[in-house]
Amino acid sequence: MKVTLRIQRYNPEKDSEPYYQEFSLEVDDDKERILDILHRVKWQYDGTLAFRRSCAHGVCGSDGIRINGRNRLACSTLLRDVNYRKPIVIEPLPSMAIIKDLIVDMSDFYKKYEAVKPYLTSNAPPPENERLQSNEDAEKLFESAKCILCACCTTSCPSTWSDGNYIGPAALLKAYRFAFDTRDDAADDRLDVIDTPDGIWRCHTIFNCVEACPKEINLTWHISQLKKRLAEREM
């Protein structure tokens, strides 16, 4: 069977603006991954096509792209997950500067991630053995710790589109990961960072992030926990 990819292309050395290019190729069945098809385009038709990828099974977060208008991982999306009877539209993640083809500039995303001080800060010197933590308390962190920093959520958020300074769901999720860790003593610092006009209050519970997350993390729930925590702190 034949499928067509309609890929957004942009080479800063040649093009003044992005354009679309179509590639049609034979595939075995509808269980092929979009990443494998992109690789075949690159390896057999056009070596100039540029995209990031590494682990190819959804744990490294390199290949977040936009497929038929939805932010997804190329490696975790099969043909049968999309409408392949029409050309499949492949674009870079929205609202980020494009470096080349499907590769976007992630530096702003990482800067926001770093802004929430994403590391455990403990005032007490560590005990000889491990710090004790109940399994319930540990499991409260697991969903947020699943995040692979692929940026699918942040770039799907309308608040991010309108306000580039908005810290975004991924960084807020990271703030949750540490602010709700019973071993952490720096929750206030993190809450100060997100309690700003471009911080958590720009989240209007639109749920696009939840829909986009390839790891099925309920970001909005985690953000709501932070909002409640802030409200408790202030009132």
Binding site: T196, P197, W201, K227, L230
Partner: peptide, 17 residues
């Protein structure tokens, strides 16, 4: 790194109100 027009203190009271 964030803009501050019209902001004084926490956004939490506004959100709760």
């Amino acid at each position: 790194m964030y803009k501050h027009t019209g902001s004084r203190g926490s956004g939490a009271p506004g959100w709760v109100l």
